[in-house]
Design a protein around this nucleic acid. Structure first.
Length: 305
RNA sequence: GGUACCUUAGCUCAGUCGGUAGAGCAACAGACUGAAAAUCUGUGUGUCCCUGGUUCGAUUCCUGGAGGUACCA
């Protein structure tokens, strides 16, 4: 009973290549607890080198969850992750006071920390039909539809963003109710304490780390991995930095050198988007990663206090 | 060596019938409730190669030069 107060979820977030995996591993070793990965691409079995998964040495030493969790051929999303991860956290808390969640997918982390509204799962056919409608009728048609079917949400969302419009329309089509009628989320009450950290360093250092990491991926064989997956390039899971540029190369649209430059460039842009997201989550404590030992001590000390 | 064409933003290139200039990409900033490594939005960037001439005014027209590309020799 009293124990519940001591249960903690330690959140480690930050941009790609900043060193989340290493830090989380070291913390897990010190606290003797498991790690939950909040990474929208590491969940897939087939993508390993290109998603910079933890090494097998790490995976063997500390239990990691939601890595190699599903196949690229299965649909997976933030809603599913939120539910599954929360179940897993509660399960792990039965035998351990600590659980670490680490990753760079902001929406996935938010789905766990704050929850998402409950929507009914929409059959894939509806999305495909709507995608076809968008292709033939264009964005303005989607805007007109949404304005008619859900004027409240229409005022709220970015009507230039087709993905957002299509998401709202698929819910409306499937349920015959407005999208906004589902937006009634209650504050999630967790039976554990949350301590969240976002890793930081200066931009130049981060960009150097990204460049080095991409070169490593090339040496480790990302080209061969992508070649194997080329036949499945239509999968959403493979609409991913590192793979999509190599698919361009396989299609003979660009050279391998161009592909490598583009992977670096697109990874930098992705990292910037993550920084924008996490710096606006003001519940995160900032941790400078430049001195890894100091960062580790700081987090462990705060968790134990 | 000759002829033709080219030289404009970090890159690729539009354009100005003479009134000092844009697009895409990059860069930077932002948004984001089931595609989130996805998707979307905003903001600039300049000796318009140099030189002289014509002109009220030249990046634009003319002379000469430099560099590049193609073809001919």
């Amino acid at each position: 009973m009293l124990n519940n107060i001591e249960k903690k979820l330690i959140v480690i977030a930050g941009p790609t290549a900043i060193g989340k995996t290493d830090l989380a591993f070291q913390i897990a070793k010190q606290l003797n607890c498991a790690i939950i990965s909040a990474d929208s691409r590491q969940v897939f079995k087939e993508t390993t080198i290109g998603t910079a998964k933890p090494s097998s040495a790490y995976l063997n030493e500390i239990p990691h969850y939601f890595i190699n969790h599903v196949s690229i051929h299965q649909p997976y999303n933030a809603g599913l992750f939120g539910q599954e991860a929360l179940n897993k956290i509660n399960y792990l808390h039965q035998t351990n006071n600590y659980v670490i969640i680490v990753g760079g997918s902001g929406l996935y982390i938010n789905a766990v920390l704050h929850g998402l509204d409950e929507f009914i799962e929409v059959p894939i056919q509806i999305r495909e039909n709507l995608n076809a409608t968008y292709k033939t009728h264009g964005l303005v048609y989607l805007q007109e539809q949404l304005k008619k079917l859900d004027p409240i949400y229409f005022k709220k969302i970015d009507i230039q963003n087709p993905q957002r419009m299509l998401r709202a329309l698929e819910i409306i089509t499937h349920t015959n109710k407005s999208y906004s009628s589902f937006l009634n989320k209650k504050q999630l009450q967790h039976p554990f304490k949350i301590q969240s950290y976002v890793l930081e360093t200066d931009r130049e250092n981060l960009y150097n780390r990204i460049n080095v990491r991409v070169d490593c991926m090339i040496n480790e064989g990302i080209v061969e991995e992508a070649q194997q997956l080329f036949q499945y390039k239509h999968c959403n899971a493979l609409n991913t930095v590192g793979y999509k540029e190599l698919f361009q190369y396989f299609d003979k649209n660009i050279s391998i050198d161009q592909a490598i430059l583009l992977i670096k460039q697109h990874t930098r842009q992705y990292a910037k988007r993550q920084i924008t997201w996490f710096t606006h989550q003001n519940t995160f404590t900032k941790v400078l990663i430049d001195d890894a030992k100091k960062a580790l001590e700081l987090v462990v000390k705060q968790v134990n206090s």
